[in-house]
Design a protein around this nucleic acid. Structure first.
Lengths: 230, 230
DNA sequence: CGTGTTATTGAAGTGTATCAAATTGCGTGG
DNA sequence: CCACGCAATTTGATACACTTCAATAACACG
């Protein structure tokens, strides 16, 4: 399933995602803790990091690849809550709220993750108070995004949400080929509606569909469609 | 408009909301800073603490009353993002994300607030590392709630969202008489839909409407209607 | 080169928004 | 304290964007 390496030789400070992670300010002892405690995992597309309802037992640090956070309701409708790429942290909310995870984390590409056990995280936070401030900043920004998404979900038509989803998913996760269903799960609509809307966008010359690929050909007009202005 | 008292005699440790606030663990010097720096405000219903787009310059600590956080889009549709009561903090997200506020804060009842200037907050956080952990915990919980609300907004009918809104608003903010529009702004629907749905609920014996008041007469069935089970 | 997953298309139904107009309830000032 | 005026609520009619279900087609992967 997932290859696990306790890779001591691979130091965090050499990680290509180090400088953009919350840990970038760590000094000697902190870095040592991190290096000693972290466990590197390799996931392939579709692998699950954790399931909804699991107890949070650590922090997942994305080295490369893409991970989606999602949640399925009783009727099988999926909401993609968040997407992560290199430098992002997963699972710290449940860690700090001390509850079981609400969402599942699923790799959508070949993904490399460093797992940092709960104890190590709290030890790091204790010794490096600015760390929690960095978490706070990230979470604040994520929350802000959720505020906007909630408003859009409630008050904007699917067409606009799909336009925005296309832009967001494409421009933040270049390597990933999103499926129609994934776009729908992010936009909060159905696969069929996404497909029909994509056809409309193509007819209007905003995008081009080759097979399952989607190419944005008129970014500006697509932005207009998304009504990014609120 | 708003009465302002720099009330040094009124100590935070005597505040009825102190024990449930993030500051409950503060010791001597911290408490002193808090007491010296805080400014007490009194707002009446409808008063605005800050507008969307304002620069965050401090923290608002609710002593008593109720404050709603909301955001209006270009078409005049309002999304109520959050509601606060005694012991809650307002504005710390913008403080930590270092951006202008996305939402406006409006008192919906006579409300007493202690304002703590940005500098004082950061000084407190610096000297009391566990403070930021407490903020983190609160924000994590709030985020979790937003995840659920986003999913509901996208995948559940207005009826269920309204049922849940009734329960949430009534049970967490007893003193406040919410208007149909406020319920709609929270549920993410229109005033008319709320009114029609309330009529349905009344016909089914779940609630009773006397004038503008709403009394929940069958909590269990209302919970069922809300599909609280996900 | 099959086989399962993903995408596509069609038809039908409906929940909810929208707009407009009437009514009620409430706080306020006379 | 009552009447007034305004805001909140109510009701009706209409429209349509979106979901749902089902069946077919295209693609990717081993």
């Amino acid at each position: 399933m997932t290859a696990i390496n306790k890779n001591l030789s691979n130091n965090c400070q050499d990680c290509k995602s180090f400088s953009i992670s919350v840990f970038c300010s760590l000094h000697n002892e902190g870095l040592e803790t991190l290096n000693q405690q972290k466990i590197t995992h390799h996931y392939k597309s579709g692998d699950v990091l954790f399931h909804s309802g699991d107890t949070a037992n650590g922090l997942y640090c994305v080295v490369s690849g893409t991970v989606k956070l999602e949640r399925e309701d009783s009727q099988g409708k999926t909401q993609m809550v968040q997407v992560y790429k290199n430098g992002d942290m997963i699972g710290y909310r449940s860690l700090f709220s001390d509850e079981t995870t609400l969402t599942s984390a699923v790799a959508v590409e070949p993904t490399e993750i460093c797992f940092i056990p709960k104890k190590a995280v709290f030890s790091l936070v204790k010794d490096n108070p600015d760390l929690s401030l960095k978490f706070l900043t990230r979470l604040s920004n994520d929350f802000r995004m959720m505020e906007i998404r909630l408003q859009r979900a409630n008050h904007q038509p699917a067409t606009e949400r799909i336009a925005e989803s296309l832009l967001f998913l494409r421009e933040n996760f270049e390597s990933k080929k999103w499926t129609r269903k994934e776009i729908a799960d992010w936009a909060g609509t159905t696969t069929e509606t996404v497909i029909r809307t994509l056809a409309d966008f193509e007819a209007e010359g905003l995008i081009e569909q080759k097979g399952r690929g989607i190419v944005i050909t008129n970014r500006l007009k697509l932005l207009e469609k998304a009504s990014i202005s609120i």
